[in-house]
């Protein structure tokens, strides 16, 4: 599913999600243990992933590279719970929601 160099992240392939609403829903449905494990494995590879992806034309990514980009977008999605909140939801955000209705697609 991912470029060979990033095979170590294959076990997190359920985080390969194309849209923000899917990534946000997965974040809310995940435990901190799950997100911490994903973050701990993916964050050290973020810089290498960027360098790898930048060698390709952004709007013409091969499937494995596109999956890697989606995975890194999910890493960004879990970064707040892991680095800041220590919980999946924004604290005190209760029933508040904010839907992303337009996002640039790759």
């Amino acid at each position: 599913m991912l470029p060979a160099e990033f095979a170590a992240l294959e076990r997190f392939s359920d985080w390969v999600l194309a849209t923000e609403p899917e990534r946000y829903a997965k974040r809310l449905a995940s435990s901190m243990e799950e997100m911490q494990a994903f973050y701990d494995a993916a964050f050290p590879l973020l810089e290498r992933a960027m360098a790898h992806l930048d060698a390709f034309e952004l709007h013409d990514l091969p499937e494995a590279e596109r999956n890697l980009l989606y995975l890194m977008q999910s890493l960004i999605m879990v970064s707040f719970p892991v680095e800041v909140w220590k919980q999946p939801r924004v604290p005190d955000s209760g029933a508040a929601y904010l839907d992303l209705v337009v996002e640039p697609r790759v």
């Binding site: 923000e20 992806l53 930048d54 977008q73 999605m77 800041v84 604290p91 955000s93």
Partner: peptide, 30 residues
């Protein structure tokens, strides 16, 4: 517009961060 994946990811963290802040603001208003 992003020219590279790195630029796209730089915009992603800005957009994600915006949402984290706005959710705090929105609930406080209620």
């Amino acid at each position: 517009p992003s020219r590279t994946a790195s630029e796209r990811l730089a915009r992603e963290i800005a957009a994600v961060t915006f949402k984290e802040y706005a959710l705090q603001d929105g609930n406080t208003l209620e």
